[in-house]
């Protein structure tokens, strides 16, 4: 394989990984910008979505129905999570909500171990899609192509939603000034629930794409992606939605090219590299690469 072709394939690979990170990060950033909550359990919605899709498919549902239903289940789980775990804590110390989300992770992951068993299961429900697509002399993974195109469509819709709809503007208003947004009559609960719901839908979808990429699922699969999504969010300047998207892609590229460029012996250190990157960015440029003042903006 020529080096150009190799580079191109890595490029698509990075684009696809970055897309998934972007999808996960949007949900994380939406909730953070409104509640100042880092929801570690956000990654577990990827896991729940994937398991739901697999189980519904195995139960005999057509594949697309299973996917839609599974993603919806992920969204609803997000709503339940907000209602049961985070709403009672609204207004309490930042650290308490963070620790709570950590406890929710343990709760959900062990719940999944209990229900689905601790073992890795193959996830091949998208295998009917031709594995590769030939573009001239290049072979592109079709899952990657679908991931990129689908994410792009979702990102455009999200941007329109945030920019144009009353609910989208309300979300930005709440992120801007919680008190003022209540005074003008923005229904806070509705906005928060919507943020959780949308973010959780995206997480469910990201779970599907992630699992299809990996070809397997397991109860703890969501943890590393969500912590990486946090890194992406930091790269983009925490709390900003466009920043989340850019951060997701930057991280995808950094990771793929780190692996591609390093000798195979060091590839196991990929995750360590990501977090060293995180710590460096937090120290050198805490406002993120985009330079949004997201961190000071909220009291």
């Amino acid at each position: 394989m020529s080096s150009t072709a190799y580079f191109f394939q890595q490029f698509i690979n990075a684009l696809s990984l970055g897309s998934i990170y972007a999808l996960v990060t949007i949900g994380l950033a939406m909730v953070f910008s409104i509640l100042r909550l880092i929801n570690f359990a956000h990654g577990d919605l990827m896991m729940i979505g994937s398991y739901a899709i697999l189980m519904l498919f195995n139960a005999g549902l057509p594949v697309w129905t299973a996917i839609l239903a599974g993603v919806a289940i992920s969204g609803i789980t997000g709503i339940i999570m907000e209602r049961l775990c985070y709403r009672p804590l609204r207004g309490s110390a930042e650290m308490n909500t963070l620790l709570t989300s950590f406890a929710v992770v343990v709760l959900l992951e062990n719940g999944a171990v209990l229900f689905f068993g601790p073992n890795t299961q193959p996830f091949g429900i998208l295998n009917f899609i031709q594995p590769t697509l030939a573009v001239g002399s290049l072979l592109i993974s079709k899952i990657d192509a679908i991931t990129v195109v689908l994410t792009l469509a979702i990102l455009i819709l999200t941007a329109l939603f945030i920019k144009k709809t009353t609910l989208g503007i309300s979300m930005r208003a709440v992120a801007d000034d919680l008190t003022a947004s209540q005074l003008v009559g923005i229904p806070l609960n509705r906005v928060i629930v919507s943020a959780f719901f949308i973010g959780s839908l995206f997480a469910g979808l990201a779970g599907l794409l992630w699992s299809a990429r990996a070809g397997k699922i397991f109860p703890l699969m969501g943890f590393i992606p969500v912590v990486k999504a946090f890194v992406a969010a930091v790269i983009g300047g925490f709390g900003s939605i466009p920043g989340a998207v850019i951060g997701g892609y930057v991280l995808g590229f950094a990771e793929v090219f780190f692996v591609a460029l390093l000798p195979p012996d060091f590839q196991g250190y990929r995750d360590a590299f990501v977090f060293v990157l995180l710590i460096i960015i937090l120290l050198v440029r805490p406002q993120g690469i985009l330079g949004a003042k997201a961190m000071e903006r909220r009291i």
Partner: peptide, 28 residues
């Protein structure tokens, strides 16, 4: 009543220190 319901009933408080949404446009 929660704050948003009170606004719907017809009370509007313009708070001290203005507290406009600084990242939203004037129209928004």
């Amino acid at each position: 009543l929660p704050a948003d319901r009170i606004v719907r009933r017809g009370i509007s408080l313009c708070p001290e220190g203005r507290r406009i949404f600084s990242s939203l446009t004037v129209y928004e």
